[in-house]
Amino acid sequence: MKRLRVTKPKAIIKVFAVLLPLLLCGFGVASASSEHSSGVSGNVAATPAVEVAHGGAEAAPEEEKAGDVIMHHILDKGVLSFEPFGEVSLPHLSIPASVPVLGGLDISVTKHVVMLWLVSAALLIVFSIVGGKYKTMNARQAPKGLANAMEALVEFIRLDVAKSNIGHGYEKHLPYLLTIFFFILFCNLLGLIPYGATATGNVNVTLALSIFTFFVTQVAAFRAHGVKGYLQHLTAGTHWSLWIIMVPIEIIGQFTKPFALTVRLFANMTAGHIIILSLIFISFILKSYIVAVAVSVPFAIFIYLLELFVAFLQAFVFTMLSALFIGLATAHEGHDEHEAAVAHH
């Protein structure tokens, strides 16, 4: 819970850090464009900014275009663009209306869906190799290479995340926690590759993942306490007269946890990409090589390295909090109820 409070201001700071350069750029462009005519934009190298220059000659549309290019990069869409080689449009699909629940749902394959599949393929390849090695290895052999690298992470999730947060019966949740950790980690890392996109920078993806955590948590709570224990858990062991306050708070609490997970992962991943793009765009908007060399590239590299760290950190945080929520849901609060019972008498 403490981590929750720590991370939120960080995300706000990141968003602010995104907004600040954008606002500054806006001023810069407004002044620069009024001095020079639209012909100056020809100096800019062949990059996305060329499109910016192509579209509108005047200052105000150009400024909007910078934001558009960033959003174009961040947002999900139905094409895979490999500029300057062209783009691949992806098929539009929808579930037939005859299917009972999901009928008529638009399930078009988008850029982020392709990234998810790439991540899945990478995961399956890596872990089929690692799993195969472990199958052929006996207990006396030490793992080497890829198996060793993955084992360090698996062991970390197993002991420091699952065992220390869930405690007794953590083995049941290990496959879920390991999968979600590596899934998010690979998504984050693939987003840092050129032409890649960060699927975890899409709020829908993170929402789906945290819904899984929500269900796993609820099922674990029901399994650990039964229906009666689960309902007692909602009252937080307080006096019955407080239930009218406590029960709604506890129910809302059940939903804020996955919501926080969703927003944290999405905001962190998106923010990093926006910062990198904004830093690059400063040089295009100010039309200065000096700015590019002195500011944009060094800072973008710095943020990129930071993003590498954040990729691991956010995968860890998501997994850690999932484990924590499962641990909280399954914890036996025997002494609390006992104390409450003593207080009654």
């Binding site: 999900d76 699909l93 999901l102 749902l105 638009d106 399930i107 078009s108 394959v109 988008t110 982020h112 869906v113 998810l116 699927a199 899409n202 829908n204 993806v205 929402l207 789906a208 993942l209 819904i211 899984f212």
Partner: peptide, 9 residues
């Protein structure tokens, strides 16, 4: 985007 949620799941 329900489609993306679906595919993610």
């Amino acid at each position: 985007n329900p489609g993306l949620i679906f595919w993610t799941a």
